[in-house]
């Protein structure tokens, strides 16, 4: 779905830092949404933790760099890292090219999917006010 010029797919879940999450079987695929990607500009580095690493809901587990800012990636769930996108090691700009596809970042295997309820998810009635508010707050002046 397009909202204010950004592609924000309706089927995904989003956190406040503008990372997206997609449920695939018992795993969660995650990446950066288009709003965050445009705000960040050229991505120059994505930290790829080892597969099997434990993650905790609300806790940081990796770093992403753009424009001399080293940003933090948080997990929405308790669980483990099932896989990382190794392509990003040599080509982090895949996130800039295709943030919902080839630029996916991590696959998490949650203990349970319960905490997904805390994420932003729904149709235009949910996504549009959420994004509009953040555009107001963060759009480059």
């Amino acid at each position: 779905m397009e909202i204010a010029g950004y592609n924000i797919p309706e089927e995904l879940y989003y956190d406040e830092h503008h990372f997206w999450f997609r449920v695939e079987g018992d795993e969660l695929v995650m990446g950066m949404d288009e709003f965050a990607e445009k705000l960040a500009g050229q991505i120059v580095f994505v930290q790829l933790p080892f597969e099997g690493k434990n993650v905790s809901a609300g806790k940081k587990f990796a770093k992403v760099e753009s424009g001399k800012w080293l940003g933090t990636v948080y997990s929405p769930v308790d669980g483990v890292i099932a896989a990382v996108n190794q392509e990003l090691e040599s080509n982090p700009s895949l996130i800039n090219q295709d943030c919902y596809g080839a630029g996916w970042m991590y696959r998490l295997r949650p203990g349970d999917m319960g905490s997904l309820g805390k994420l932003v998810h729904g149709g235009r009635d949910v996504l549009e006010p959420w994004l509009t508010e953040d555009i107001k707050k963060f759009k480059k002046d």
Binding site: K60, G67, K68, G71
Partner: peptide, 21 residues
């Protein structure tokens, strides 16, 4: 922009940052 301080086009202070929780 994006995050330098300059004097007549010449850089005098470079910056960087990160966050945690």
């Amino acid at each position: 922009p994006r995050n330098d301080i300059e004097v007549a086009g010449r850089k005098i202070s470079g910056t960087g940052g990160t966050d945690s929780e």
